[in-house]
Structure formats: C-alpha cells, structure tokens
Design a protein around this nucleic acid. Structure first.
Lengths: 186, 186
DNA sequence: ATCAGCATGTAAGGCGTTACATGATTCA
DNA sequence: TGAATCATGTAACGCCTTACATGCTGAT
C-alpha cells in the first residue's frame, strides 16, 4: 500500500496513454496540465526510479546514437494503483494565492499598491487564458476521442475560472477606487 | 534581506492589525483566509520564534493564571518587511487541483467515477460557498472600515470563483453523460 | 562555431505536515 | 468528571524546488 504521492499519479496517468521519457513527462506537465499541477526534474526522475523498482512501471533504453534516452511504460500494477487512486473519494484541492494574501493585507499601505497588484494578476491571467483557449480550440475539433473530452473539460475549467477572475478584477479595482478614502503617505 | 517566507508575511499581516498569540494566529488563518492560504502550528510557532529573534516582532507574556500565553506584536522592522513584500511586483499563485488531475486521467476507467468525483467536488465547493457568503454578509455591513473593504474583496473573489466552479460542474457532468460512449468495464 | 533543445540525473536546502507531548481552564 | 477549548512547542518525515553537473544533436 504505497502512499499515493501525487507526482506518481501524474506520471502513471501520462504513461497510461503513451510511453514517455522523463523529459517528455516534464513537457507534458508544463503543457495543459500546468495550470492545475506542477512538476520538476528533481521531482520526476526520482519518482520514475522508485516506481520502476516497485514494479509499477517498466523502462526501455530508446537511446538514439550517443544520446541517452530511457522510455517508461506503465505495468499492470501501475494501472491498478492509478485506478485505485481515481476511485478514492477524496481530493486535496489547494490554492495558494499570494495575490489575495497581498490584497487581504492591503490596508497597511496605500490602495495604489493593491490596484497595481490586481493589474499584475490580470495580465498574468490574461496571458494564461490565451494559452488555454488555444488548447481548447484544438481539443474541440475532435471530441469523438474520449480522452479529448476529459482534457477539454479540465481546460474549460481553467477558462471558466480565469474569466471569473478577470471579471472580479474589474470589480475589485472599481471598489478600491470608490471605497477607499485615504489620507495616507508612502 | 530575509527570504520572504510566506507564512512570515501572513503572520506580519495579521499582527499589523492586532496583537495575537500563536494559537490566535492559527484561528485567524483557519477563518476567511483559509480558502487561499493555510498554516499549521508546526509552521507558525517556529516562524514566530525566528521573527522574534530577527527583531521583526516582539513578544509579551500575557499568561492568565497557570495558563501560558504569549502575545506577539509587530515592530517597525517587521512592518517595513511587510510593506516591502506588498510592493514586490510578483506573486506566486498556485493551485493544486487533485479533482482536475483525476478528471484529466478519467479516461482510464468508466465515466461514472469521473462524474462521482465531480459531485464530490461540488459538495465541497457548495459548503465552502455557504461559509464565504456568511463572511461576506458580515463584512458588507461596514465597508466604511477600510480594512473590511480589503477583506470583502478577497471573500468576494472566493464567492465568484466558487460560483464559476459550480456552473462548470453542471456543464462537465452533462458533457460526460452525452459525449462519452463506452463499451467499458470496471 | 555556437546556441537551443534533448536528455539524465544528484545534492542541498527549504518548507510544511503530522503526530506527539504536555498541561490549564471552562462548561455541561 | 469528562470533554472541548485554550495554549505551546518539538521531532520526524516527506516532498519539492533550485541549482548544479554533464553531454549529445541539429539548426543557423
């Protein structure tokens, strides 16, 4: 009974679709997954090693010329663990919004800083939104592929929430401009 | 030049409003802040100790009877650090949505599990939403207090995004029911 | 020739969670 | 009397990030 480390689940999930190298896995995570999960090499390679030794995944040397390349594929035991995790009726959803933290404590200085922080957040969200819409366009084209439906749903979650964020930004800036009256310095 | 550990900023922010014990700080974080930031005793007490030794905050024994009690208050140097952080034009906003991770890999088994996971998410969001609306009601009553405006904005961020989540849940369940045709087992 | 991208990995350090350990007070 | 809440803290462990270290290949 392993401990269900989340990066393991991400890797198993990706490998359930196709064989991948550690480097590939990183690229996949940095793609459409990145807005709801992250991974790093220092994270991925050790996980790969562990799961291989536990018999969850298998490896194959796919080196080309002098360039080292190790591809991993999922094994039966790995698939079982993946499904077990999917069936568990609990999910740790966590957000850490430094922007909100700063806003929460915005009162300690002038409102300009808070407005500026919201604008920075807006910019960040807007560019993420563009990326997500790009993914959505591609996915929409073949929703007959079951897997694409699942991908599309996560992407549309991102789009919907980011759009809600942007609406909130407008409202928040307006409220700060109207409601905060300050005889402040700094 | 300290390292801007986020829990330090949370504590400095809270102490900028009122003197608090470690226990109080935990309670504050578990309140309206909890949906965008978390903290634990094993996190808070050491941070308090460090910041006291660095001269960012001061402590006072406020024991009552035999019950030990240490209250902390913010010092000038602590306030400077807080403001410095607020002015930094970058914010690490991170979400880790296990629900979305599970959905992303939903294709490896039947859609029922994915629908079930969305329903569980919905329940979780709905009860959080009720709490947030409670906070919002209280805060709305005196928005003449500048601090309350800031609190209100973070709470309304939560409400707006949670409402967007719920709308997405309806859409996602519908799409899974319509689009996924499976001759699958298990 | 050089730079970007492919490719693998380790090491140190940072941060946080969980569990443990202890004890007082208040209220039913 | 016992449970809940107040209150402080430590220790072990787990996980991840960052930086480092190395080397090949393909395109300009």
């Amino acid at each position: 009974m392993a401990k269900d480390k989340k990066i393991d689940m991400v890797i198993l999930g990706l490998l359930s679709h196709e064989d991948l190298t550690g480097y590939d896995i990183k690229k996949r995570i940095d793609g459409a997954v990145s807005f709801f999960w992250k991974g790093s090499f220092g994270n991925i390679y050790p996980a790969l090693k562990d799961m291989e030794s536990m018999g969850l995944i298998g490896k194959k040397d796919t080196s080309v010329g002098g360039r080292e390349r190790v591809s991993y594929h999922i094994l039966e035991k790995g698939k079982e663990q993946l499904v077990k995790w999917l069936r568990e009726e609990q999910a740790g959803n966590e957000l850490r919004y430094e922007t909100l933290l700063k806003l929460f404590f915005g009162g300690v200085q002038g409102k300009d800083i808070s407005i500026r922080n919201i604008e920075l957040f807006e910019d960040q969200i807007r560019s993420n939104l563009t990326l997500l819409k790009g993914y959505a366009d591609t996915l929409e084209k073949n929703l007959d592929n079951n897997d694409h439906v699942y991908y599309y749903l996560t992407v549309s979650f991102g789009i919907d929430t980011y759009e809600a964020y942007l609406k909130w930004c407008v409202k928040a800036k307006k409220m700060l401009k109207e409601k905060i009256k300050e005889g402040e310095i700094l």
